[in-house]
């Protein structure tokens, strides 16, 4: 029971990070129908940008831990959004009219490019960050096993809930959200109603990237180490989460992220840590076989 509770807490925390990244995959797929395989690397860029801000300001002796993190998150969001914008502008927009595979190949190329660029600029070794937020609650104790809920976990899950709520409202209620949904359903018609489709698509990339940057910051502070390659595995898992939830569906991405986080944590808790990735991807295979539209995805309706 105690063990289960601890795994649940850890799983929800990890799932929050996956969920935030998965939103970027699902929104971009929704609007232009492509999988942005460089999205995981935007997450990595976000983590690095945050680390640079923290180390830089820390070296100058500025600010408390809390203030540093807030500044770092905002900085990481801005940098990642700029990368997201540039990615779309340089690698995807020129290929929009061409066959679908072209953009996909371009995305994989951009992913490799970003990894190598960060490897060259920042070095290949892992970058550590000493713990910035320590302490927490002890929820239960039995023998020498304690169930911990750290402040950091509360912050991660709380921030995720706040961001997802805000983001859902943005999509549902604001004019920007409406224009995104309109472009998703009929891009040409949206243009004929005066919507700047290119700008809407750019904005979608920037929003997804900013959310991924927040996830990157959480990853950095939670695990304390990052390297240039973290975007690959985490990105693929977040993509799995988006597919599991139903790609193109916003609540689906959040649910999928949570489920993948839980599956991975429970698998490593009760079976073997070595096979936790296998467990997560086995889910992807099973979903694609038995429910290709995902848990909350709409069945593809043939356009007339």
């Amino acid at each position: 029971m105690e063990y289960f509770l601890q795994q649940l807490i850890n799983g929800v925390t990890l799932g929050s990070i996956y969920g935030l990244i998965a939103i970027g995959y699902t929104m971009v797929y929704g609007i232009i129908g492509m999988i942005n395989f460089a999205h995981g690397d935007i997450f990595m860029i976000g983590a690095f940008s945050g680390l640079i801000v923290i180390v830089g300001l820390g070296a100058l002796g500025l600010g408390s831990a809390g203030g540093l993190i807030v500044v770092a998150i905002i900085g990481a969001m801005i940098v990642a959004a700029a990368y997201g914008w540039a990615l779309e502008r340089i690698a995807y927009r020129p290929l929009r009219g061409s066959f679908r595979l072209a953009a996909l190949i371009s995305a994989i190329g951009m992913s490799i490019l970003l990894q190598n660029y960060v490897q060259l600029a920042q070095g290949a070794r892992v970058k550590p960050l000493q713990p910035m937020i320590e302490g927490g609650f002890v929820l239960m104790q039995k023998g020498d096993f304690t169930v911990n809920l750290s402040y950091l976990q509360i912050i991660i899950v709380g921030t995720t809930i706040a961001l997802m709520t805000g983001f859902s409202l943005l999509i549902a209620k604001t004019s920007i959200g409406r224009s995104q949904r309109a472009c998703e359903q009929d891009m040409k018609m949206a243009a004929l109603l005066g919507l700047d489709v290119n700008r809407t698509i750019s904005l979608t990339f920037m929003m997804g990237a900013a959310l991924a940057a927040v996830a990157g910051m959480m990853f950095l502070i939670y695990y304390g180490v990052i390297d240039f390659f973290i975007g690959f595995l985490v990105g693929i898992k977040a993509f799995t989460a988006a597919v599991l939830g139903g790609i193109g569906s916003l609540p689906g991405a959040m649910l999928g992220g949570l489920l993948i986080g839980l599956i991975e944590t429970f698998w490593s808790g009760y079976f073997t840590v070595e096979y936790k990735d296998v467990a997560a991807f086995a889910i992807l295979v099973l979903v694609l076989i038995f429910r290709p539209t995902g848990l909350l995805g709409r069945p593809e309706v043939e356009k007339v």
């Binding site: 004019s175 409406r178 224009s179 949904r181 309109a182 359903q185 018609m189 109603l193 005066g194 919507l195």
Partner: peptide, 16 residues
């Protein structure tokens, strides 16, 4: 835009 509400369809046209 079939998945949007009737009113939302009219709101989209006033985006600018």
């Amino acid at each position: 835009f079939p998945a949007m509400s009737v009113l939302e369809n009219l709101m989209v046209a006033q985006h600018n």
